[in-house]
Nucleic acid binder design. Structure first.
Lengths: 229, 229
DNA sequence: TCAAAAGTGTTATCTATACACCCATGT
DNA sequence: ACATGGGTGTATAGATAACACTTTTGA
């Protein structure tokens, strides 16, 4: 290191911002808030917060997510740290961006009103403050990459889901159409889905069998180098 | 955000740490320094530095790399930000880790003495301060992933390299042996290598043709979704 | 009985892997 | 002439992609 005394260096405000993904059955969405304070009050923004003295960034992200959604045990993952000198118009703030995957149905809708938050389809996002658009773009890229090799797509669905639902999710993430025969074949061949005896009967007359993600089987797999797509 | 006034939040020291990879022709190595100041003076450490008021983290990482190696235009990429409350024994410091790929032959060896730095094979690393071991592990994983899909391995070699050299590199990164026929076939099929008329004659009597990475062709490729391995 | 979505198998193509011999050259 | 490492092709297996009809059931 150049200068050796910690005290000679300026400290910086450290924030976290969360890209919260949800899936409504046909579209992939992100949860945004109307910023309630200056600067940029009233503009659309990612949910964020400052990292406190007694918490690491992961905790800060989970805290912030809980505030907005009422949910704990959310799947979050650190994405990238944004550090440009003038990224925040109110002063030097670096932001550690996280992406979160939640079951859109499970979050507390009352809190949506408090925070003036709203779900936006990814292709219909409003203008965002600061560098938040960059964050969303990066999160989208990471989601695609992650979901191709790790069983995290399930986080966006209810515990029980049907194969057509899962396929819709992948189609939304990759903005592409998939052949359902090939899709079912591949997903089932991974050996991490457990078929239930129960059917979902909302979206079709015939009904589609529910599946659950088999965590136990997944953990037992040596390699964990799956290919979902 | 919870509390809206920026001033109510504690600022934090922000550092960068660099995992510097090099390849000596047969082994993959990382460049470490003997830390020259307290705390943990004299112990092995990644090269790092604090992020200044007037620079973003990328710049800080490049600055730090230049100090240690004398090189500019180094390939660096942000890896992960480490934020545990007590990760630095001297106080709250978060560190944005970067990984760098350099041509081991091109760096300034004089600076090695000034900083008491040394190249360590990845499987013979000494104990490291703080959470630097975690950083190295993460960097290793990222290198493997990156190099499988992006043309960054070349950063570890000289501008001109032979196919056997490139294969040795991949074998070192993945700790595996590859079939040279299949390797050559795949690499050449990507269409991003340009064969030169010149041969390298150090390591064999017959000599091996030099290749260069064809940046122009690579940029022209639409998808850029390559599979190197 | 019909409309709507679920479920299911086979073939063709592409990609990945396994494998062995000749070539060029310096000693 | 021989030892050393470089260079090359083919055959097989496995993975992916293309493709269409039957089933169930509520309206």
């Amino acid at each position: 290191m150049d200068i050796q005394n910690y005290k000679l260096h300026k400290k910086i405000l450290v924030a976290v911002d969360c890209i919260i993904f949800g899936f409504d059955g046909s579209e992939l969405k992100a949860l945004l808030i109307k910023r309630g304070f200056e600067p940029e009050r009233g503009k659309w923004s990612l949910m964020g917060g400052f990292v406190g003295e007694d918490e690491n960034a992961d905790k800060a992200a989970l805290r912030v997510l809980h505030q907005l959604t009422g949910m704990k045990d959310v799947y979050v993952e650190q994405l990238h740290t944004f550090t440009d000198v003038n990224r925040d118009t109110a002063g030097r703030v670096i932001s550690i961006a996280y992406f979160a995957l939640i079951n859109i149905a499970a979050h507390n809708k009352q809190l949506e009103q408090e925070h003036e938050s709203r779900w936006f389809p990814l292709d219909k996002m409003p203008a965002l403050i600061f560098d938040h658009k960059k964050m969303v773009e990066k999160a989208k890229a990471m989601l695609r990459q992650k979901v191709a090799t790790h069983p995290v797509g399930f986080e966006l669905l209810a515990k029980k889901f049907t194969l057509p639902q899962l396929q819709n999710l992948y189609e939304a993430i990759y903005e592409t159409e998939l052949d359902k025969r090939n899709f079912a074949k591949k997903m089932l061949s991974l050996g991490i889905l457990k078929k239930l005896d129960e059917k979902e009967r909302e979206s079709s007359k015939k009904g589609a069998f529910y599946y659950v993600f088999d965590t136990v089987k997944y953990r037992k797999m040596e390699s964990n180098a799956l290919k979902f797509i």
